[in-house]
Computed example of a mutant assay.
Amino acid sequence: MADWKKLAKEALLADGKIDTREVEILRRSLFADARIDKSELEFLADLRKSAKSTVKEFMKLFIEAVKNHMLADGVITDTEAAWLRKTIFADKKVDADEIELLKELKRSAKKTSPEFDKLYNECVK
């Protein structure tokens, strides 16, 4: 059986970038069941890391997906915080979109773990 993630990644990044049309396709497909699972979130993170460039709508989709997954139960765990840390620091810098994501997660979560609080305090100054 073909690896759908590998195939989709190759198709989406054939030109090295993710455009608005591709974001619409990703949104329709990934949010078809109104929830983002761990595999789908990992796929988006990999796309984000691998693309030479993305349109602003892609970051909006990524943030929405992270919030959908991590806030499903209202609690951000140490494991989820570790994933966030790895993803945010993948390029060795924290950008404005990532800071906004952390702020939105902090505002929306019913409870955050010590690891998330540590990450938040490091990134949001």
Results as ranks from 00 to 15, higher is better:
Arg21Pro: 07
Glu98Met: 02
Ala65Gln: 14
Glu10Thr: 15
Cys123Leu: 08
Glu115Ala: 12
Ala81Asn: 03
Ala11Tyr: 10
Ala2Thr: 13
Leu7Pro: 05
Trp4Asn: 06
Glu115Pro: 03
Ala2Asp: 13
Glu98His: 01
Gly74Tyr: 13
Glu100Tyr: 08
Ala51Asn: 08
Trp4Thr: 09
Thr112Leu: 08
Phe116Val: 00
Lys110Cys: 02
Arg21Glu: 15
Asp33Trp: 06
Leu105Gly: 01
Leu7Arg: 09
Ile36Tyr: 12
Ile99Glu: 12
Arg35Ile: 10
Ala82Ile: 07
Arg48Lys: 11
Asp95Leu: 03
Asp117Val: 09
Tyr120Ala: 01
Leu61His: 09
Ile36Arg: 12
Asp33Thr: 03
Ile88Gln: 10
Thr87Arg: 14
Ser53Cys: 04
Ala72Asp: 09
Val124Ser: 04
Gly16Cys: 00
Ile36Glu: 13
Glu57Thr: 05
Ala51Asp: 06
Lys5Ala: 09
Lys52His: 10
Lys9Ile: 08
Lys110Thr: 08
Asp3Trp: 05
Ala65Leu: 14
Lys67Tyr: 07
Leu7His: 08
Arg48Ser: 13
Thr87Ser: 15
Glu22Val: 08
Gly16Tyr: 01
Val55Asn: 09
Glu100His: 05
Ala109Ser: 01
Asn121Glu: 12
Ile88Asp: 15
Ala11Asp: 13
Glu40Arg: 09
Ser53Asp: 14
Ala2Lys: 11
Glu80Trp: 02
Glu104Lys: 06
Glu24His: 13
Arg21Gly: 15
Arg21Ala: 15
Asn121Ile: 10
Arg85Phe: 05
Phe58Thr: 05
Asn68His: 07
Ala72Gln: 07
Ser53Ile: 01
Ile36Pro: 09
Leu84Trp: 03
Asp46Lys: 04
Ala65Asp: 11
Glu98Ser: 03
Lys49Ser: 14
Asp95His: 03
Met59Thr: 00
Glu80Met: 05
Leu44Asp: 09
Ala65Cys: 11
Thr112Arg: 12
Lys67Thr: 02
Phe31Pro: 11
Arg85Ala: 06
Lys86Asp: 15
Asp91His: 11
Pro114Lys: 02
Leu13Gln: 10
Ser53Trp: 08
Ile76His: 10
Lys67Arg: 05
Ala8Glu: 14
Pro114Ile: 04
Glu98Asn: 03
Phe116Pro: 01
Lys5Asn: 13
Arg35Gln: 07
Ile25Asn: 15
Ile99Lys: 08
His69Trp: 07
Ile88Thr: 07
Asp78Lys: 09
Asp15Asn: 14
Phe31Met: 14
Asp3His: 08
Ala109Tyr: 04
Glu100Val: 02
Asp3Pro: 05
Ala34Lys: 15
Glu122Ala: 05
Leu41Trp: 07
Phe89Pro: 10
Phe43Thr: 05
Val66Ile: 04
Glu22Trp: 14
Met59Glu: 00
Glu42Leu: 04
Glu10Arg: 15
Glu22Lys: 13
Gly74Asn: 08
Glu42Arg: 00
Arg28Phe: 01
